[in-house]
Amino acid sequence: MIRLQQLCKCYQLGDEPVQALDHVDLEIGAGEYLSVMGPSGSGKSTLLNMLGLLDTPDSGRYWLDDIEVSALGEEARAAERSRRIGFVFQAYHLIERLSARENIELPLVLTGNAPDERRARVDELLQRLGLDRHADHLPNQLSGGQRQRVAIARAVIRKPALLLADEPTGNLDSHSGQGVIELLEELNGEGITLVMVTHDPAMGKRARRRLWMQDGKLIKDEQDAHA
């Protein structure tokens, strides 16, 4: 599903150039559950942004579902993001002035789906995530765990093939974190490809395939034998 070939990305941090991705080669199959671990500054977030088409590589190539997305322009990449990729962020990134329901349906609003269709799909997801009582609440009326559930609902409302999670439990206590990670795993169980960046080894270990990064390089790639 995903193929990276010799991907490089260099940032200028102050005067220092930082090699965030250093000739990374990676293949990810459909339906995989993958965690990316490593110290901060190792390039794991950059890798996630690359996979999510939020960032462009300096060199190297990237195929997503047999499309060479590294050759696409910004408008085409936006269309691919909309069609194939869902994001879950550490800081939730909910829009504060919109209710839980409006946040969840935002991707459908952007693509111009009809209100009736949106409503049905959002209702279904709210029900499933146990958020139906909170549909009309604003984000600041929700707990951290509920907010992250809303964010996950927003990420999967368009039924993407790839779900990217950047420290999804980073701002949560262990109990809410547990709930969120179980939800993500449940979605993975239904066939969505899940890539999760974390610095928490306990979380990382849950994944069937685990990558370790350092200084922009993949240093370890572990896979459970029975996967």
Binding site: G52, E75, A78, S82, I85, F87, I95, L106, L110, R154
Partner: peptide, 16 residues
């Protein structure tokens, strides 16, 4: 700014 980033992550194009 971060809302713009989010909208783009959700697939909003430059034109949108």
């Amino acid at each position: 700014t971060s809302e713009i980033g989010l909208l783009k992550a959700l697939g909003a194009s430059e034109r949108q």
